[in-house]
């Protein structure tokens, strides 16, 4: 597992991505502490200011410091994204792994459930969930977690299926190994990279969804700052602060890009990139075999 990460980090894009993610993680943990102003403090004298030495990113329509709100919003946005990924992992990866080993009935039921999850429209489902369970970030994120569960389910299941049909698993079974042994000693190592790739890209995806939802005002109670919420406020005051949405948008885009770049690097590290493209060689060989068209 560690060598996969090490191989992935050899790529420059992965290095940049990890750098960005470290900064974001830092902001999420310490952001509220290092914020120069109270993110909730209103100031009716300095409404809708541009960037100044005092307010680096200016102030919003209630005179709150945008930079401080951005830092404070990091915690909520990142935690929300992680919440939904954890829900997705538990509801997706776990049944995906078990579907290979717990018999046909379990396999059939989980497959049907995942199929029905896929058909749910993202935003509508999240809105319906918050309408049903009350408007709160946790409710919204559970909804998002359910929606991304099929991705985890399919990836885990596919990886586990491949391994479970391998000869080394059969060899272990011929030694009298139990299913638990096979999963622990053989399957887990092969499934982990696939889950890691999906986790990285799904964190990115759910960050976008969190931002979209909070942008729409779902899952968040107004004074609380989030990246999506900031974007919404800034878009509302575009005339006064035309540059306003740029920074929150860049933060969202940068984080999502970093997560996707990391996912790509992990994927490259797990699939053998050194092998020559077979189809190309086959095409060349075909030239030596007479053919029609």
């Amino acid at each position: 597992m560690i060598d996969v990460l090490r191989a992935a980090l050899r790529l420059p894009s992965a290095k940049i991505a990890v750098g960005i993610l470290i900064v974001i993680a830092f902001l999420a943990i310490f952001g509220p502490l290092v914020a120069p102003f109270d993110p909730y403090a209103q100031n009716s004298k300095d409404l809708l200011q541009g960037p100044t030495l005092e307010h680096w990113l200016g102030t919003d329509d209630l005179g709150r410091d945008v930079f401080s709100r951005l830092l404070a919003g990091s915690t909520v946005s990142v935690l929300a994204a992680m919440q939904s990924v954890v829900v997705g992992l538990v509801l997706g990866a776990l049944p995906g792994l078990l579907s290979v080993y717990l018999g046909r009935t379990f396999e059939w039921i989980t497959l049907r459930i995942m199929d029905s999850f896929i058909t749910l429209p993202f935003l509508v489902f999240a809105i319906a969930m918050t309408a049903l369970l009350g408007n709160g970030l946790t409710q919204a994120m559970v909804a998002v977690g359910i929606l991304i569960a099929p991705a985890f389910y399919r990836v885990t299941r596919a990886a586990a299926l491949t391994v479970s049909h391998s000869q080394y698993v059969e060899a272990a079974q011929l030694f009298g190994a139990t299913t638990a042994w096979v999963v622990r000693k053989h399957v887990w190592k092969k499934v982990f990279p696939a889950i890691a790739v999906t986790t990285a890209s799904m964190t990115g995806a759910s960050l976008v969804i969190v931002s979209s939802l909070t942008f729409l005002g779902i899952g968040i109670v107004p004074p609380e700052p989030t990246w999506g919420g900031l974007l919404a406020t800034d878009l509302g005051n575009l005339y006064q602060r035309p540059f306003g949405p740029v920074v929150p948008a860049l933060v969202i885009i940068g984080t999502v890009w970093a997560l996707n770049a990391l996912a790509d690097a992990l994927k490259d590290a797990t699939t053998d990139a050194g092998a020559p493209p077979v189809s190309k060689q086959k095409r060349r060989e075909l030239q030596a075999v007479p053919h029609g068209a």
Binding site: K282, E285, L286, Q287, A288, V289, P290, H291
Partner: peptide, 20 residues
Amino acid sequence: SWQGLRGNRISAVFQDPASY
């Protein structure tokens, strides 16, 4: 020139016939 030669005067068969 290869096209005129390969398959016409020099031809080949490989290990896995189905893939051709």
